[in-house]
């Protein structure tokens, strides 16, 4: 007994090291998979608070640029509105009663990374603003990522610049779809894989979201084709130049799909029956 005790005392540093190392290794492995970063994330009270403080100072330096972006978006939305008015021949619908499947929640980015292989953003909206896991996040230009963790006032977003990300996307002028991934090389270029070889692709074609999942609505802009090549199993692999500047994000919109729960529970039911 005494010998065991002596052994522990003699090797206490190594044992301490081994236990703590194992713990951090488990945390690391967990962080490499989606949906399991619950324990350690920047969506908590302390780091969220400090990042909010930082953002409060930083936002003043970007106000002018932010205004320009808002004006551009307003111009775009106004154009669309005019088009709708033309369609409805004077009968403009009342926007408050208009039924829409999607609800948009605006949020401020308080922490952003784009130089790692698994990049994650923190936004200043959380469960109390009805943000929840698996909601899509976009800017006025294009998509940003998917919410992967929520606390009361903050949420973390798995950016498209993350090797775990897979987002359904398709070429705008055809219905051939594939999954959007990232090869960690450049923060403004992502890869769209497994596009059927029958699809006609040209450099400069627009890539949009597919709408088959409940996360993003159909037709959101992602980017344009920069280059393409025929892959191993005779499918196209495309390099996509992203519309969103992932290195410069301030305001984003979180998309809530009101039908998501219904669709998912239905799909789960039919899976269980099989």
């Amino acid at each position: 007994m005494q010998q065991i005790l002596f052994f522990f005392i003699r090797n206490k540093n190594f044992l301490l090291f081994a236990v703590l190392f194992l713990f951090s290794f488990v945390l690391t492995v967990q962080s490499h998979s989606f949906h399991s970063t619950k324990f350690m994330s920047s969506a908590n009270f302390l780091s969220g608070g400090i990042f909010t403080f930082k953002t409060n100072i930083n936002t003043y330096f970007g106000l002018e640029e932010e205004n320009k972006k808002l004006i551009q978006e307003n111009v775009f939305l106004r154009k669309e509105l005019e088009a709708y008015k033309m369609d409805a021949a004077g009968k403009a619908p009342d926007t408050s009663t208009l039924h829409s499947k999607y609800r948009f929640i605006d949020a401020q980015v308080i922490n952003n990374s784009y130089s790692k292989t698994k990049n994650i953003l923190t936004i200043q909206k959380g469960a109390s603003d009805s943000v929840s896991i698996d909601m899509g996040v976009i800017t006025s230009n294009g998509i940003v990522g998917i919410v992967n963790n929520v606390s009361k006032n903050y949420a973390t977003v798995q950016s498209i610049l993350n090797t775990n990300s897979q987002i359904n996307a398709r070429v705008k002028n055809s219905n051939h779809f594939g999954s959007l991934t990232w090869d960690t090389k450049k923060p403004n270029v992502a890869q769209l894989n497994d596009i059927n070889r029958l699809a006609s692709v040209k450099v400069g074609d627009t890539i949009i979201t597919d709408g088959k999942s409940t996360i993003f609505p159909e037709g959101l802009f992602i980017g344009t084709i920069k280059a393409f090549e025929l892959g191993e199993n005779d499918n196209y692999n495309l390099d996509v130049q992203l519309f969103t500047d992932m290195t410069n994000l301030k305001h984003v919109y979180v998309i809530e799909n009101k039908d998501a729960e219904e669709i998912q529970s239905l799909e789960k039911e039919s899976e269980d029956e099989q």
Binding site: F17, F25, S31, T37, S42, F51, T156
Partner: peptide, 27 residues
């Protein structure tokens, strides 16, 4: 050893990186 672990863990907390800084600091 304990302080290094806490140091790495606080960097991880802010950077959403799991436990990579904690592990590296420990070693």
């Amino acid at each position: 050893i304990i302080l290094s672990f806490l140091l790495g863990l606080s960097i991880d907390l802010f950077g959403n990186s799991g436990g990579i800084h904690a592990a590296a600091c420990l070693v």
